[in-house]
Design a protein around this nucleic acid. Structure first.
Length: 848
RNA sequence: GCGAGCGUGGUGGAAUAGGUAGACACGCCAGACUUAAAAUCUGUUGGCCGUAUGGCCGUGGGGGUUCAAGUCCCCCCGCUCGCACCA
């Protein structure tokens, strides 16, 4: 008996697939297409097991859809711009491009042995001038239609990376990469007008049923639509030019509960008062407070009474103080609010601190209700509010808005939390923004025939900041319009721009224009997108915006309005970690240095007891990383693929264990042994028609189960069913030909998960051609139906017995058989049952 | 604080539409083969009582609906993730 040798077999089949170009996708209007895409990797240098899981999922889908007759597009590329390349350049005195291209080559070498059904002819990296040049062309088009603009803005400045960050890239007040506290700085920046699409991006979420609810909710919250009233109070005692204070509220119904107004320290009015040193100091303090979550949570609500007052719009005698307050944000609404302490917790805290009136105006329990230490924010009816008394919150909102609109001091408005997307980055390793600054013509887009505006190669990273700024020959150019001396824009684009349209470029990766509309029309949208949940907002929202922006500029057909029809977010691969204390410092150990015992772990080299840490995401710092290359060397790609797909549901985290990997490997070996035994067995073995039929039925049940499992993204269940089928086949006493037929189906069903062993088994069993190109086995539904079924009998809801009955035995006959059952007779003890329930084909319940 | 999700044996996890809880796998235990080990194969494996036929308990906890609840309803507890001074 021969042993299965993955090291020989796997490269053999990979070469066979390559030679036959079976994964090359070509447009064919007579065929239905299927576009499956995994989030493309950043070329960090090595692939990790999380990549393996991600791409295996995509590969299973791609291979399955191919077998089902679809024309499948399954491409791969590289998200190749970004900070780490510059950091590496500084550290190792190399060029970001060199570093990146080496990494791409290395990672591709690691990916190839996994046997993914990728069309490598479509591969590109976002740092290819061919790609980013097309991006620059679209930038110019979008600039022309007003989707891009420049403005002076207070930006999130990362002092370590020395660049601007989008709001989305600030996490807990820190840079998402550097983890350094973000500073506020005023700069002129390029923006995409994503806010033009706030409403549409929100509404369209409802038409993405195959996106996870969670991701849709996150995007909804991020876009943050709110409806309210924007209106002006008359201001008393304000500096010249400020006779009104405009505020925004979502609770106009609580207008009679107002007792103060508060403005942001960045509000023009607050700035106008800064001649007063007290105000100047206070404002400066507010600005310094920072934006970190911890800082905000701890920060007390503080304010400074300006001495000014506002007049209540419905009660001219009521004057209320105006504060500058640290909890009011300048960039939401108007940067000013009216405070209604009874019905907003922040306002209540503030009012308590400064002794302001708390007037309850909404009550769920009658007109005498008074708010205590907690603001009342639930439904109720209006009290203490003149003409609003007795109305519901919603009725009162409508009433107040219409009265304010009638006097012309404000109007009902919709606001969004979503801000425009700032894309300027003061970095070298990104897509250059293709414009020129000319003293006479202003901002001039580069001529399209001059694209791409290539990054210069001769740059150094010995100083912080952007090397493009100091690159004289690159920077100094002639104005494309008037020809006078001018300067190139040195900002590059946020790398999220690169990843916002790569999916579209894959449909025509070498086209002269950014996209080929006919190709895009055929291949788009992506039918199945697979990636990590960490991109739930940024990447996925930007891509959705970009699809609309590209359509507006004629780069996408109308049908491709949403990039991704279905989204699947896969869980992480985790691993326990191992640690020990050396001189009061924690030292981590790689799994390969550790021997795992039943209760703990010891160090392989010294036998020293070490601590087993909890199961966490694999990370270099904790050394709990399993390198896919090691796994492939040891067991082969099929084992790695089979393991990452088994046991855990794909959306959940999966824990890598060596025992699990071993089990996967054993199964591959077992399949090979079985195939080998079948092929060498005597063809005239003993069999009966019953045995043959039973195996055939098991085969069709496996076809049904595995098909449903893959279609429903329940790969773990598909694999469990394949184990079951394997057990059945092994025990079967059917003849050689029957077993061969079953084993051929086994190869077909395993092919999406473990294509190499599947090819080998297919060939050994005499399958025609390659199993990779064979159609999916056809299900005969008749084979799923059994003539006799086993029905459990419950007595008072507890399973006590079972009977075998013909599938379509009438209910009355089933009842008779049930009552004749030994256990039932014993339980009844001669009495008649209170009730007898027969659910045809399912269960019998005898109630005593 | 708001939003979403989750909680099932020693472990990962199954369980269409309320109908046999624990599929499948790991681990453990026992047996076969072997001089021995590895590999492989076979069997057992939720807990408790019992020699056994069998019985009782059991899906985070408590209550409810139902002939029947992991699944539906109400209350509570715990964990994970996301958002968070957004007026």
């Amino acid at each position: 008996m021969s042993r299965y040798n993955a090291r020989v077999t796997e490269p053999k089949w990979q070469k066979a697939w390559d030679d036959a170009q079976v994964f090359k996708a070509e447009r064919d209007d007579s065929l239905e297409k299927y576009y499956v895409l995994e989030m493309f990797p950043y070329p960090s240098g090595r692939i990790h097991i999380g990549h393996v899981r991600n791409y295996t999922m995509g590969d299973v889908v791609a291979r399955f859809k191919t077998a089902r007759g679809y024309n499948v597009l399954h491409p791969m590329g590289w998200d190749a711009f970004g900070m780490p390349a510059e950091n590496a350049a500084m550290e190792h005195n190399t060029h970001p491009g060199t570093w990146t291209r080496q990494n791409i080559a290395a990672m591709k070498e690691q990916m190839k042995p996994l046997g993914f059904s990728l069309d490598w002819s479509r591969e590109f990296a976002t740092c290819d001038p061919e790609y980013y040049g097309k991006q620059q062309a679209m930038f110019i088009d979008m600039l022309e239609v007003g989707l891009i603009y420049r403005k002076n803005a207070v930006v999130n400045w990362d002092p370590v990376d020395m660049t601007v960050l989008a709001n989305e890239q600030v996490i807990d007040g820190k840079g998402w990469r550097s983890n350094a506290p973000v500073e506020r700085k005023e700069l002129t920046q390029w923006f995409f007008k994503i806010s033009d699409y706030s409403d549409e991006l929100l509404e369209a979420l409802d038409h993405l049923p195959n996106w996870p609810e969670k991701v849709r909710t996150m995007q909804k919250n991020w876009i943050g639509k709110s409806q309210g009233l924007q209106f002006s109070f008359d201001l008393n005692g304000a500096p010249d030019g400020f006779d009104a204070l405009e505020v925004y509220t979502t609770r106009p119904d609580t207008i009679f509960g107002a007792s103060f107004a508060a403005i942001s320290a960045d509000h023009p009015l607050a700035k106008a008062l800064e001649s007063d040193p007290k105000v100047a100091t206070f404002n400066a303090d507010c600005r310094r407070m920072g934006t970190s979550a911890e800082a905000m949570e701890k920060a007390e609500k503080i304010g400074l009474d300006t001495g000014m007052t506002i007049t209540h719009p419905f009660d001219p005698d009521l004057k209320m103080p105006v504060y500058i307050a640290n909890f009011v944000l300048m960039d939401y609404g108007t940067g000013a609010i009216f405070g209604c302490p009874a019905h907003d917790q922040r306002d209540l805290d503030f009012a308590h601190k400064y002794g302001l009136e708390v007037k309850t105006v909404v009550s769920a329990t009658g007109p005498d209700y008074e708010v205590g230490t907690e603001a009342f924010v639930d439904a109720g009816s209006i009290i203490n509010s003149d003409f609003l008394n007795g109305l519901s919150i919603d009725e009162a909102k409508v009433e107040v808005i219409s009265r304010i609109e009638a006097v012309g001091s404000g109007k009902g408005v919709t606001k969004f939390r979503l801000r425009d997307w700032g894309i300027s980055r003061q970095r070298y390793w990104g897509c250059p923004i293709p414009v020129v600054h000319c003293d006479t013509c202003g901002i001039v887009p580069e001529k399209k025939e001059n694209l791409p505006v290539k990054l210069p190669e001769d740059v150094t990273f010995d100083r912080p900041g952007n090397p493009l700024d100091r690159h004289e020959t690159w920077r100094n150019v002639d104005c494309p319009k008037c020809g006078a001396a001018a300067k190139r824009e040195t900002d590059t684009m946020d790398t999220f721009v690169d990843s916002s349209w790569y999916y579209a470029r894959f449909t025509s990766p070498h086209a002269e224009s950014p996209t080929d509309l006919a190709e895009a029309e055929y291949w788009l949208n992506v039918d199945q997108y697979i990636g990590g949940i960490e991109h739930a907002i940024l990447h996925l929202l930007y891509s959705r915006f970009f699809a609309r922006a590209m359509q507006k500029t004629g780069h996408l057909p109308k049908s491709a309005i949403e990039p991704f029809n279905a989204l699947f977010t896969q869980g992480m691969v985790t691993h326990e970690f191992y640690a020990s204390e050396v001189n009061n410092r924690t030292v981590y150990h790689h799994p390969s240095e550790v021997i795992r015992t039943s209760h703990g772990a010891t160090l392989r080299s010294t036998g020293e007891e070490i601590t087993v840490g909890p199961i966490i995401k694999m990370s270099k710092s904790k050394k709990n990383v399993v390198d896919p290359e090691d796994i492939i060397d040891q067991y082969g790609a099929d084992t790695a693929r089979w393991f990452v797909m088994s046991d855990s549901p794909p959306e959940r985290d999966v824990e890598w264990t060596s025992a699990g990997a071993e089990a996967a490997w054993k199964h591959i070996q077992r399949i090979w042994r079985m195939a080998d035994e079948i092929s060498q067995s005597a063809s005239d073995g003993v069999t009966t028609p019953d045995e043959a039929l039973a195996l055939l039925k098991a085969t069709h049940r496996a076809i049904d189960d595995v098909t449903k499992g893959i279609e429903g993204f329940a790969f773990n269940k598909a694999i469990a069913k394949l184990y079951e089928f394997t057990n059945t086949l092994q025990k079967s006493k059917a003849g050689k030909a029957d077993k061969q037929a079953a084993m051929l189906v086994m190869a077909q069903l395993m092919q999406p998960m473990t294509p190499h062993i599947a090819e080998e088994v297919w060939a050994l069993m005499g399958g025609k051609g390659m199993v990779t190109t064979a159609p999916w086995p056809t299900l005969d539904p008749a084979m799923l139906i059994d003539d006799t079924i086993t029905m459990p009998i419950q007595i008072n809801g507890k399973r006590r017995s079972e009977i075998k009955v013909a599938k379509d035995l009438p209910k009355s006959e089933v009842e008779k058989l049930a009552l004749a059952d030994e256990a039932v007779i014993r339980a009844l003890a001669g009495n008649a049952p209170k009730k007898l329930i027969v659910v045809p084909g399912r269960i019998i319940n005898v109630v005593i």
